[in-house]
Amino acid sequence: MNRIFIVEDDTAVCGELCRLLKSAGYETATPLSFERTVPEILACAPQLVLLDINLPIISGEMILCELRRKSDVPVIMVTAASGSDEVISLGCGADDYITKPYDPSVLLLRIAAVLRRAGKLPMCEKWRDLAVDTAKGSLTRENTEIILTKNEMLIFRQLLSKQGKIVTRDELMTALWDSDEFLGDNALTVNISRLRAKLAEAGYNDAVETRKKQGYILK
């Protein structure tokens, strides 16, 4: 399981963040004090660091610079709405940034993307006995090949990343829109039915379950 180290001084935000990430299947850790953040991060050896830029004692940028000297752990900076923090933080070696307030779906998407880029998530995924090839947009077994469109693949990947758990429509929408596929509500439903039909055709009936008013589950 991937461990995420959260450096955030607002306790309410920090607590909710932990809950969000835990329910998304990550382990979380937080610093005990903001004086020795870098050694704590190093001791914890997380797969990803979520680092706020406005911190007491030492600023997020300083922590990032210090951390970068000792480790290349992926870092997502959390920047305030003001200023050009992103430019500075990306210059310091952050992998991505996100602006407060946290849009939960976007945050989860960014985390997954950064983890994938850093190779902490498997590139070639498997679902049941099918190999998932994102680049080719296909699911393959010895002699079966299911070709998915770009949208269907995006949906499938999102479902797969949380296999067995509910994925909300908003999470699917966020993933699609973030990839410049600005689908409407109906189009999403159509795409999911098509995905379902394609899976059923290959012999996987009821692979995608609908939970009313909640979302979808890939079994």
Binding site: D10, A12, V13, E16, L17, R19, L20, A80, A81, K100, P101, Y102, D103, P104
Partner: peptide
């Protein structure tokens, strides 16, 4: 103000 807003959104 973005802090409580963030917490609320996450909550």
């Amino acid at each position: 103000i973005k802090l409580p807003l963030s917490s609320l959104q996450l909550m």
